[in-house]
Amino acid sequence: MEGMTRAELDVAESRDFALGGRPMRPRDAATLIVIERRAGAPFVLMGRRHRRHAFMPGRFVFPGGRTDPTDSRIPVVRPLHPDEEAKLIGSGARASSARARAIALSALRETYEEAGLLIGRKDAFSTKSRHWQGFAEHGIRPSLDGLRYIARAITPPGRVRRFDTRFLAAWRDQVAVELAEGGPTDELEEIVWLPIGEAIEAEVPVITRTVLDDLDKRLATDPELSPGGPVPFYFMRANRFMRVVL
């Protein structure tokens, strides 16, 4: 995607985004890449969005969605690693620990809602938030210390919906409970584990393919995903899609 003009990107993403939206500020969003090694090869969890959806219909994606600022109030077993928190906080007027925590917890919540995976540890947990009742029912307190920040991407202008998405990663052994019936929502179907190479060639959005390629390269040099690693950031500037490393 790096270096593509807005017109080129509009064509590449025409299946995934409704074009022609009014100018709008991107909304915070979070997505989680759950990784498992099989015979030394990394596999990732993906699900196909229903074809009736207006946003990325029929595409394989990672669990994720819009960030809910109230997620920052959810108690956790352990917080984000300091190096990961610092990268998520970043800089700017809206930078804060609470925002970084909300982004990370939103990724966990969405992964439960869409894929039925509860990431955390067995521990007493209760909350008044209706969005976290699944964790309470299964006695799982979320934990953030194993999350790794992989990439960030802002949806280009001219879309009906725009998101400032943080791509986070977690290993499958951080999953405390896997619900056989999947998550309580119908956002994703055909939930599958794919080798990264196959996932890159699957029906995935352009940005997902780009992030998968970044993840594949990072795992080749940093197989354990050390805290504070490089984070590619994709955004549109001066009619060109840019890539910088945070």
Rank of each mutant, 00 (worst) to 15 (best):
A86D: 05
S129D: 15
T165Y: 00
A104Y: 01
D123N: 14
R109G: 11
L144V: 04
T111A: 14
D123W: 12
T155H: 00
S97F: 03
A151M: 03
T165P: 01
Y149P: 00
R166L: 05
W132Q: 10
D145M: 04
A98G: 09
S91F: 08
A170H: 03
L88S: 03
L118E: 13
Q133E: 14
E84N: 01
H81F: 02
L147F: 00
L108V: 10
S72T: 09
G116M: 11
K122P: 12
A107C: 09
L88Q: 03
F163N: 11
S126N: 14
R78W: 03
F135I: 12
K87N: 02
A95H: 11
G90R: 04
R121W: 12
P142L: 06
A104C: 09
H81M: 02
V160T: 13
P75A: 08
G92A: 12
P75N: 09
A93W: 07
A124D: 14
F125V: 13
Y112W: 14
A115Q: 11
H138I: 13
W132E: 10
I150N: 05
I150V: 14
T127V: 14
D123H: 15
S97M: 03
A98R: 12
A124V: 14
G116W: 04
A102Y: 00
T165F: 01
R94V: 06
L147N: 02
A102G: 04
V175W: 06
K128Y: 13
D173H: 11
S126L: 11
T127R: 13
I119N: 08
W132V: 08
L105Q: 07
K87M: 02
E113G: 09
H138N: 15
A151V: 00
R99Q: 09
R172A: 13
A95Y: 06
R166S: 08
A124T: 14
R159V: 00
D145G: 05
P156Y: 03
R172K: 11
A169T: 02
S72C: 10
